[in-house]
């Protein structure tokens, strides 16, 4: 009797597997395939391409722009997601939990809006906000005048810092929601007991909130790491990866190699595959850490 049940189970899984195969596994396999070719988007090699084996990968490893894009993506993820979004999200969640603070719903709403507006809109908004003659400098104008400074072109002089701040602004809502939910699950009596024992608010945070939140924090880290590594639209709209390659995330690196001159699809696919492996390794590390925490 065991076999038919197993068979039914497999049959029921089939539709989902087919969809995954069609939309996930096939594109991945295709990406691996073209990374071994010299396929281009246009020109003769778009039709007649040949196999170049590992040439794309070897060239990538020797390409300073690729290493730069890894560095930019790494800094971007660490500072905007792991440090910025997670800590700000946690702080906001803690504030939202406090009683007797007026206007906290309004703050939550503003944070939330940043998260739900389309990426392209967010990109253009930040682009015009931070540009040389944008609102940011207009607001800072009195300070500039006071110090006798020239306007700072944020997107040109501090591009990486600007996109990191923009991404913190955009993505904090998720961490905030996740931590709010996690905080709700911490029983109140633990705090009451601690108060009776005379614990300070720092001690309550350190010995109750933080340990009980650590699982949520790890989940948050996994998700925002993946998302932030995949960010493309907002930054592309804001800076296009520039000036030079100062904000060229690996996603922008791949896009530029594939869809703008020199249109090297194979090369871009190789870069995407390497990044896939790196993100996979990161996620596996996180998962291992989660296991450690549970057992």
């Amino acid at each position: 009797m065991g076999l038919p049940a197993e068979l039914t189970g497999r049959l029921l899984l089939l539709p989902a597997l087919v969809l995954i195969g069609l939309f996930v596994i096939f594109p991945v396999a295709w990406g691996v395939y073209i990374s071994f070719t010299d396929m281009t988007l246009v020109g003769p090699k778009a039709v007649k391409y040949g196999f170049v084996m590992f040439k794309n990968y070897l060239r990538l490893l020797a390409d300073p722009d690729f290493w730069n894009s890894l560095r930019v993506s790494f800094l971007f993820t660490v500072f905007s997601a792991l440090i910025g979004q997670a800590s700000l999200g946690l702080a906001l969640a803690l504030v939202l939990r406090m009683e007797g603070i007026k206007g906290k719903t309004a703050v939550a709403l503003v944070v939330f809006i940043a998260w739900i507006i389309p990426e392209v809109v967010a990109g253009f908004t930040w682009g015009s906000f931070a540009m040389k003659w944008g609102y940011l400098n207009a607001m800072l104008d009195p300070i500039y005048r006071l110090l006798g400074m020239k306007y700072i072109n944020w997107l040109y002089e501090k591009p990486l810092e600007t996109i990191i701040i923009a991404n913190i602004w955009r993505g904090t809502a998720f961490s905030m929601i996740l931590f709010t939910a996690a905080l709700e699950s911490i029983p109140k009596f633990l705090y009451e007991a601690a108060e009776v024992d005379g614990a300070s608010s720092w001690q309550k945070f350190r010995y109750i909130t933080f340990p009980l939140l650590s699982y949520a924090i790890l989940i948050d880290f996994i998700l925002i790491t993946i998302w932030t590594f995949m960010v493309f639209t907002m930054i592309y709209v804001m800076t296009g990866g520039g000036p030079g390659t100062a904000t060229e995330l690996w996603t922008i690196f791949v896009y530029k190699r594939a869809f703008t001159p020199p249109y090297t699809l194979g090369y871009a696919a190789a870069a995407a595959n390497i990044m896939f492996m790196i993100v996979l390794a990161l996620i596996v590390t996180y998962l291992v850490m989660i296991r450690r925490i549970r057992w």
Binding site: L17, V18, I20, G21, L22, I25, F26, A29
Partner: peptide, 13 residues
């Protein structure tokens, strides 16, 4: 499993 899925995917597409 992966090979099977790829084949299924190609046939289905």
């Amino acid at each position: 499993a992966v090979l099977g899925l790829i084949i299924i995917a190609i046939i289905l597409s």
